[in-house]
């Protein structure tokens, strides 16, 4: 990028963060404002350091939920960065993204979307179409579209993000399961229940295989146990959970917030189909893992 944050700004930033984390905004804000004033006096308004300082102050406002004030500062910082660093600089993309986040927090999804799209274009141009940062930007864009109920677009963006994460970070990266979960939510919104179900099962199978090895007759992910229990309901007499389900205890040990969410979501889908035994099996497992 050619620009490096000067040491004194870094020190100031750390100080400001410290005050802000203690809730001492009455100290943090004037500190930023004084620094801004000094910087503008020595370097002029259109200087990268001023933009950085504006970003620091915007963070303090964001932490106070003063999104409007924060957005105002970021707009200013954006203009400076475009002028001093060029329109396609990663710093411009980052500022556009954060501006979109602030608009999003105020429910201004329509205004946020074009900013997010511009950030995406810059990142694609600078980093290439298959960089994880591009995937992250696609995620934010999907979320903004989701809030506007534009599900076809949401689906498209999540699919692209998933493709990037899978190819660049590998199938077991947490981002893959997270994005699959988000994509499944989008399927649900469109009434594509079968597609959602397939994705949820895929997440659970992968998580299981990662921890316990390939799936076979003696090593099944939780959803297979759930469906077997559903199919054999009434036929089987009560037995202890461990003997009844073979590797059930293993299936239950798969543990992460994403997997837990997936268990609950798939359980809701089972319930919708009247597969109550299967639903309960997953719920018990979700209950245990949290």
């Amino acid at each position: 990028g050619g620009y490096e944050i000067p040491a004194r700004l870094r020190t100031l930033h750390n100080l400001v963060i410290q005050y802000a984390s203690q809730g001492r905004y009455e100290v943090a804000v004037p500190l930023c404002k004084q620094a801004l004033e000094d910087l503008e006096k020595t370097s002029g308004h259109d200087h990268p350091d001023v933009a950085t300082m504006l970003n620091i102050l915007a963070l303090v406002y964001r932490d106070q939920n003063k999104y409007k004030e924060a957005a105002h500062l970021l707009n200013d910082a954006l203009a400076i960065r475009e002028k001093t660093l060029g329109k396609d600089h990663p710093a411009v993309a980052a500022t556009l993204n954060n501006l979109a986040v602030l608009y999003g927090k105020r429910g201004k999804y329509k205004e946020a979307e074009p900013l997010c799209k511009r950030a995406l274009e810059i990142r694609e141009k600078v980093l290439g179409k298959y960089h994880p940062d591009v995937a992250k930007q696609l995620n934010n864009l999907a979320l903004l579209c989701q809030n506007q109920a534009k599900y076809a677009e949401v689906e498209y963006y999540y699919r692209r993000a998933l493709e990037i994460y899978q190819s660049k970070l590998g199938a077991d990266d947490p981002n893959v399961a997270k994005t699959k979960n988000n994509l499944a939510t989008c399927y649900l919104k469109q009434g594509k229940f079968k597609d959602a179900e397939t994705l949820y099962k895929d997440i659970l199978t992968r998580a299981h295989e990662r921890d316990f090895g390939s799936v076979n007759n003696d090593n099944k992910p939780i959803w297979m146990h759930a469906e077997e229990r559903e199919e054999s309901k009434g036929k089987q007499k009560e037995a202890g959970p461990y003997t009844e389900y073979g590797s059930w205890y293993k299936a239950c040990k798969v543990d992460s917030p994403t997997v837990n969410t997936t268990l609950k979501s798939l359980s809701a889908l089972y319930r919708r189909q009247g597969k109550l035994e299967a639903a309960e099996t997953l719920e018990e497992c979700a209950g245990k893992s949290r």
């Binding site: 990663p90 710093a91 954060n98 939510t185």
Partner: peptide, 20 residues
């Protein structure tokens, strides 16, 4: 329920904005 997943999703801030 099904809302669980979407409730988790949040727009992500880019912290690199201070490192340029």
């Amino acid at each position: 329920d099904q809302q669980g997943a979407s409730r988790q999703q949040q727009l992500e801030w880019d912290d690199s904005t201070l490192t340029y």
